[in-house]
Each structure stands twice: as structure tokens, then as C-alpha cells.
Amino acid sequence: MSRARVSGVGSYVPENILTNSELEKIVDTSDDWIVERTGISERRIASPDQATSDLAFFAAAEAIGDAGLQASDIDLIIVATETPDHPFPPVACQLQHRLGCRSIAAFDVHLACTGFIAALHVAEKFIKSGSCRHALVVGADTLSRITDYTDRSTCILFSDGAGAFVLSAGDEASPDGIIHSAIHSNGEYFDAAIVPGGGSRHPQPHSEETKYKILMNGNRIFRLAVTLMSQSIKETLEHSGLTLDQVDWVIPHQANQRIIDAVGRTLDVPHEKMISTIRYYGNNSAATVPLAMDHSVKTGKIKRGDMVAMAAFGGGLGWGSALLKY
């Protein structure tokens, strides 16, 4: 049985920047209030001619190059997104064609901000079973397209971006690679973070109650996110027979700096070991974890051989974690 190792990482964010000062002109808010409540100073916004598949393509191409591979080497593509270019086909199929991959398995997963962890979890199983040697896993979202810019509680948070990993089959005895991953859900809280309209329940959203925009109960989400991400990391470490002292870096979903800080306090992880990129990129859903990983690798913070714990939480409710030696 093979070990799934991270052979390449990549990311992409649009050039357009939406600052807190610009948001002050749109809604009743201020730079000080946003930074204090969220830790965000700016966020990236896709241009009118960009869609999720465009962001995914640039991140994927970079990850494939970082792995030293060609598109023809990829055996599987999984894209995690809540904002596909179209209701169907999947972004993964568009990505397969645009990259120039062979006729391979390609599909999307749909688990909000936990989507990348879920996609990683599935891809790892493909590699461990021997079904493929190189899997491309992408988290990509253009949340600006479903953000209500009259709602100051949500429009300050969300942004656009993409991040990607290439997982490659390695020796099972090798210490490198994904050690354990797990995902969970509890649909009891499905409406804590929801886009009411646009699906089969309300296919033509026109009213305020069923609009195709993000609605979120921030206080409810905050408590659940801190508790469940912390719990998931602890369970993954326990399953792996490791302790937090052996972890070099923790990458939580970049939802809110206060959530990141609270997870660190709950786990008793030093501030300097908690990876945060939210100040400049905001919350781009399924992209936050791989984007933060790639950014940390590029800046020399995360190095080969480091132990990295990842966790995410989002609408569903869904949550999960992964432990890997990079």
C-alpha cells in the first residue's frame, strides 16, 4: 500500500484587491472595526472575466510544476468548490481539459470551507489503494459572486482564490506524506451558514429570504468552529500516536483571525506555530488551507520534513483535519 505524499503545492489569487477603506464606502463599517473583529485588511476579488476554473487552473499548473510533473502524469483531479462556473459540468472536468490531461477521473466535492480537506481525504484513499500515482487536489472559490455587499457582517470576510496540492504515491515505509485525515458532518446545523437560493429548493431566487447570497450566524459559527476544529486535530493526532509538541505548524481554515487565535489557545499551540494569511487574503472558502500552505512554503516558513496539522470547518456543517509530513 502506497503512502500519499505532497509532491507539489501551488496557489493563485486575483490581482484585484478590495481594501477595508473601500468597504467603508459601501457599508457602514471601518478599517479599525474590521481588523479588530476579523484580522482582515484586504481581500482578493476576481475580475468580471474570471471564473472559478480560471483561478483553479493557475493554482493547479503551479502545483504540477512544483511536483516536477507534466499534466499528462496526473491520474485524478478533485476540485473542492462552492462556486463552480456552472451548475454543471464540474470544474474538475473543465480543468482536466484546460490542463491537457489524459482522459482521467475528474470530479468536484461540495463541502463548503471543509471541501479541500475532504478532497485530500478522498485523493489519499485513491493513492493508498493503488488506483493512481499522481492526484491533483484543488480548492477554488469565487465567493465574491455570492457575497451580499449590503451585509456588513459577511462582506468584510469573503474573497476569491485557489490553492492546489499534487499527491504522489510513495513508499509506505517513508515518513513523508499524509499520516492521517478525517472528515465529519452534522446536518442539524445546516442553516448556520447557507446560501438559500439558486438550488432546487429555490431555483429562481428573487425574494430577500431566498436570495443567492451567503447568510451566516457568526456567533453560532464561531463557537462551533473553534470547538470542532480543535477536537478534530486532537483526534487525528491521537489516531496517529503523535502529540502537538511533535507538530511544527498548524494551518486552520482562514475564516477569522479570532477563530484562528481561539483554536491556538484551545490547543495550547504557540502563536508563532499558527499559520495565518487571512490579513491579506480573507476567507476564500475551500482555498484557504492550500493557499496558506503554499504561501508558507514560498516564504520559507514551512520546509520539507516539517510536520503540519490542518483543519477546516464550514457549512454543512462539515469539519475535518489532516496530518502530514511535508
Rank of each mutant, 00 (worst) to 15 (best):
A4L: 05
G10N: 06
T19E: 02
N20V: 04
N20Y: 02
I26L: 14
D28Y: 09
S30N: 13
D32K: 14
I40G: 05
R44K: 13
A46D: 06
S53A: 13
A67S: 14
G68R: 13
G68H: 14
Q70K: 05
P84G: 05
H86W: 07
L99H: 04
R102H: 10
S103H: 13
I104R: 13
A106I: 04
F107E: 13
D108Q: 07
V109Y: 05
A112L: 08
T114P: 03
T114M: 05
A118R: 11
K128S: 09
A135P: 09
L136W: 11
V137G: 04
V138E: 01
G139S: 08
T150G: 02
T154D: 12
T154R: 12
L157Y: 09
F165L: 07
S174W: 01
S181P: 05
A182F: 07
G187S: 14
A192G: 11
I194S: 10
V195M: 07
P196V: 10
P205V: 00
E208G: 00
N217A: 14
N217F: 14
I221R: 03
V226T: 06
S232R: 06
I233T: 06
E235Y: 03
R258E: 07
M274I: 13
I278G: 07
R279W: 02
N283Q: 07
N284H: 15
A287C: 03
A287M: 06
D294E: 03
S296Q: 07
K303H: 08
D306K: 01
V308P: 11
M310D: 00
G316T: 07
G320F: 02
L324A: 13
